[in-house]
């Protein structure tokens, strides 16, 4: 058993040289009709209580799938309590929301639709609205073969669309696929990323999104009331200011940064993170190199957005 374990470690170390995995170039698990229907629903503000907020309002598909505002505004301009994370590549996060309170995209969509500070709709209202629309009735009949639209099918379509929101072909992924070489700065940044310790949390296919970590690891941050951290769920003191490690893909387009939008630029974010979580002081050159690497994580627009 032990020898097997060590053999496995040895083999794994051979094959997973890089702790970051590229995104697949082609998605083979998407039902295109569902996804296209989901795309319409995603941008429909009438799915919110006062007809002002759609999914797209906080996950702007033209802005890296995230919100440029510090906090998102829900129906009746209600302020949220957190900076909206990107919907792009969200399917690769091990949990959804900053504090990981949803295990799946479906739970996330369901939660956001019902959240009084977000879209504030209930199941019946959504079904009533969708069934009143000839367009939706026709579309749902085509995709789900039901004359009456069910809430669960609407969620299913949205989730299918979100699953298709993957941004492949970033320069870094191309490097991982050995299609291109990184630029000098990008490569130096990547090495720093690994040697400075960023990689300890930001690894895997989504360069993050697979574990929880404390915001302010090396420097305790004050705990603000109603912060949607792990503590909000577990009520365990240890979990204060603990959040899901966010993805770094397309990071250059998803400003402002952190759950509290405390960094307005990526430059600041890198600097703050090195100070708060790594306990190091970066030199200017190192920051530039890291920025070059981080920008190489920006991929193509999801193909589903180009589908007619």
């Amino acid at each position: 058993m032990k020898s097997f374990l060590f053999l496995s470690i040895f083999l794994t170390s051979l094959y997973s040289i890089e702790p970051i995995q590229p995104l697949p170039l082609i998605l083979d698990d998407i039902n295109l009709n569902k996804a296209k229907l989901g795309r319409v629903l995603f941008s429909d503000p009438l799915l919110s209580k006062d007809g002002t907020v759609s999914c797209n309002s906080c996950h702007d598909l033209s802005l890296g799938g995230a919100d440029s505002r510090d906090v998102s505004l829900g129906v009746e301009n209600k302020k949220g309590n957190v900076q909206s994370p990107t919907v792009f590549n969200a399917r690769y996060n091990f949990k959804q929301f900053w504090n990981g309170r949803a295990d799946t995209l479906k739970e996330q969509a369901d939660g956001s639709l019902h959240n009084p500070a977000k879209m504030a709709m209930d199941k019946n209202a959504i079904e009533k609205y969708l069934n009143s629309s000839d367009f939706y009735k026709k579309q749902f009949k085509k995709v789900y073969a039901t004359s009456s639209i069910l809430y669960k099918n609407a969620i299913d379509a949205i989730v299918e669309f979100e699953k298709a929101l993957v941004t492949p072909n970033s320069r870094f992924d191309q490097f991982l696929y050995k299609k291109i070489a990184l630029s000098d700065n990008e490569h130096k940044g990547y090495v720093l990323f690994k040697t400075l310790g960023c990689i300890f949390c930001h690894n895997g296919i989504n360069v993050g999104g697979n574990s929880f970590q404390k915001f302010g690891l090396m420097k305790d941050m004050p705990h603000i009331m109603n912060t949607p951290d792990r503590y909000a769920i577990t009520k365990n003191v240890r979990d204060k200011n603990i959040f899901k490690v966010p993805t770094l893909r397309n990071i250059e387009y998803t400003a402002p940064y952190f759950h509290d939008a405390s960094s307005k630029t990526l430059y600041e974010a890198v600097k703050d993170m090195s100070h708060l979580n790594l306990g190091i002081a970066l030199e200017e050159a190192e920051i530039q190199e890291l920025l070059a690497f981080l920008k190489s994580l920006s991929g193509d627009q999801p193909t589903i957005l180009k589908e007619k």
């Binding site: 997973s16 995995q21 091990f94 690994k194 690894n203 697979n210």
Partner: peptide
Amino acid sequence: IYLYTNQDNIAQ
């Protein structure tokens, strides 16, 4: 054991 690894498999 490793200094850094891909933690995705743990999540999976």
